[in-house]
Write a protein that binds this DNA or RNA. Sequence first.
DNA 1: TGACATTAGTAGCCCTTTGTTACTAATTGT
DNA 2: ACAATTAGTAACAAAGGGCTACTAATGTCA
Lengths: 230, 230
Amino acid sequence: MPDRLPVAPRPSVRSLTAAVDVVLLTPREGAISVLLLRAPDNQARDRWLLPWDSLRAEESPEVTAARIARGALGANPAALEQLLTLGDGRRHPGDARLSIAYIGLVPQGSMASIGAVWVPVDRLPVIAPRQRATVDAAVEGLRRRIDQSPLAFRLLPPAFTLSELQAIYELLLSRRLHKASFRRALQAALLVEPTDEWRSEGRGRPAQLFRYAPRKRRGGQRGVRFDLIV
Amino acid sequence: MPDRLPVAPRPSVRSLTAAVDVVLLTPREGAISVLLLRAPDNQARDRWLLPWDSLRAEESPEVTAARIARGALGANPAALEQLLTLGDGRRHPGDARLSIAYIGLVPQGSMASIGAVWVPVDRLPVIAPRQRATVDAAVEGLRRRIDQSPLAFRLLPPAFTLSELQAIYELLLSRRLHKASFRRALQAALLVEPTDEWRSEGRGRPAQLFRYAPRKRRGGQRGVRFDLIV
DNA sequence: TGACATTAGTAGCCCTTTGTTACTAATTGT
DNA sequence: ACAATTAGTAACAAAGGGCTACTAATGTCA
């Protein structure tokens, strides 16, 4: 019998693991809501969790995130972009060393898959600390990017009323906006175009539907916006 | 001869590896420059590379990035924040499955460690494709965040002239700015305060030195900035 | 049926912000 | 002394943005 069987060298640390987390956000009942999954196992330490999966071999994080989002929604989100990567001591449901987080935007009124629920971000249940930090970063990141990217339009269906759009901005900015000023600025930016449809919500005058259709604008020859610096 | 020798089960993928890359940026000779290291080994496939290291066990990515930056600069950068995580098929010098990239800002005039050089981003040598994509994303990310964070001030020493500050903005925005408008907007934002020092550059009137000292400003009760949406 | 509540949408006043021209100020070089 | 050069400001005109107050179109209810 030989001294040793040929065994693979055992690394001094357990193999590095990476998870991809997806924070799906949608406006719902006057609040930004996040999609959470109920743990399939009642004995699980975390009863609620963000949609996540291990990063598979040969699959890029983007593709992984898109797959996770599709699984949780039954459809593709309207936008999906990387948020951040966490790898500190905080616990992740999969005990992953690293978690790569993505933020996905879902139009108002979209359904979730079975076992998934929309929860307002200000009434989150207890979830794993790393996922909690991820959700907080996602909401903050959405707020920060809202006037640099057309993200607000991704939180609405393709056709929407201007009041609905204004409500999205008010939700994200946590303050009331002035109707006339809001519309004037929106028109000046050439971001939307009217459709020939109108929607009646029951009471009040019907509202015209618009769609997001950014047109070429000349020169962003604007000065520096120091007032946006935090 | 037996059919098979008893070998350890070989995983279908090699163990996941993660690297941390740091993109150190500084203004230098009228261009944004990035710090590159010369490969210690002349036979290396990549002769130039971004400062990077493997993610160590029990060390968070932030700490790793700070350590890498200190090693390349001999000092701490003025700012260090996470940029993005790449994990596609493009090659990384360490053949890492994942690379977590950080962007570090370095004041104008800072020295690099031995073996490191500042290279203008528009005259980069050939580097590994994944690091090339990282540098591009860093410059774009810096440009995008420049009017939301006081990043421009991190590219200057603590005391600077307003002309130097304007030059930074012109570099980042790639366009000339109007002197009077720039200064008026800066004063209105209460971001700097004058020192009692003046600097004479040789020709022309000496310039007063300022320091970054943001003061509390009341209500950002501004409307929505649709004109910043790309 | 007609007054009222409710929501959508616009006109226009007025103050603030911003782009621009044209100046003054302080230094070096010839 | 005077031109060249860089720093800094004043002041006007144009554009942007906050606000009040209106008109428009629907449902509700007496």
